[in-house]
């Protein structure tokens, strides 16, 4: 029984140590600004098309799905607030984070994992560079900066998607859609809508890098690390989403 627990407990310990060192390095020299901006470009700008597409169609689908229910009550004018609240509180952060987990946690795990199995990490350490400082901290910073921004963009584009449904199918005017959509949003919604991607970004980057840096077993190991990184990051996004939502929603 103890042997069964040993591996996950040791992995958790390693993960905590890695988190501590990666976060501590944010304030320690040397800072690899080139790597931070490169990662921001890869994670942020590189993910923009897919986040825009997903956000737009999510907003449009929410609008469509809600239409039938709202028509029953003659409340189609409420389409804007419903799309806004759903996107800003939940779908925007969670969908964007899941996309980034799929796209970038896998990328981080495979890139760092490949470096590990080809002795590049050892070479880096031997040449006087802390691989956590050089490889992991820039990815953590880049993800935590860009994911909230991507979420804001996804939210806005989703609202545009909802507006197109409302305008063409429900014949609402721009004012009838945008004004209540804007008015319904409170600071509480904005706060959780930004806190979630920030926390998820930490999870995605740290989990991706963690599985990458502990890769063993050649190319097969890299594939395994990549899969594990995406699965674990995605699961933690759902779990943490529940806890963060609970903090903001008083029942």
């Amino acid at each position: 029984m103890l042997d069964l627990l040993k591996t996950p407990v040791l992995a958790l310990q390693d993960f905590c140590v890695l988190c501590g060192r990666a976060l501590r390095n944010i304030v320690r020299r040397p800072h690899y600004f080139d790597d931070i901006f490169l990662q921001m470009d890869i994670i942020g700008f590189g993910s923009l098309p897919i986040v825009i597409l997903t956000g737009f169609f999510s907003g449009a689908v929410i609008g469509l799905q809600m239409t039938r229910a709202l028509q029953t009550y003659g409340a189609t004018g409420q389409i804007g607030p419903i799309v806004a609240v759903t996107l800003v509180r939940e779908l925007g952060p969670v969908l964007s984070s899941l996309l980034i987990a799929g796209r970038n946690a896998s990328g981080m795990a495979s890139e760092i994992g490949s470096m590990k199995v080809t002795e590049q990490i050892d070479a880096m350490r031997a040449l006087g560079t802390d691989p956590i400082q050089k490889l992991i901290t820039p990815r953590v910073i880049a993800t935590t900066v860009t994911l909230p921004m991507l979420t804001i963009i996804a939210d806005f584009v989703g609202l545009v998607g909802g507006f197109i449904v409302a305008y063409y199918l429900l014949n609402l005017t721009a004012g009838q859609y945008w004004t209540p959509a804007y008015q319904i949003l409170e600071w509480n919604d904005i706060a959780q809508g930004l806190l979630k991607p920030f926390v998820f970004a930490l999870v995605i980057s740290l989990v991706g890098c963690f599985y990458g840096i502990r890769t063993t077993g050649g190319t097969q190991g890299v594939g395994r690390a990549t899969t594990q990184a995406v699965v674990v990051a995605s699961v933690w996004i759902f779990i943490l989403n529940l806890f963060i939502t609970r903090i903001f929603v008083n029942v």
């Binding site: 080809t118 590049q120 050892d122 070479a123 880096m124 350490r125 031997a126 006087g128 802390d130």
Partner: peptide, 23 residues
């Protein structure tokens, strides 16, 4: 520690089995 080792490691040249070049 890793940080304390860097000055000493700077005095060593290492050739890894596969070269260890950054691809």
């Amino acid at each position: 520690s890793e940080q304390e080792l860097f000055p000493t490691r700077a005095k060593i040249g290492v050739l890894f089995q596969e070269g260890g070049l950054f691809d």
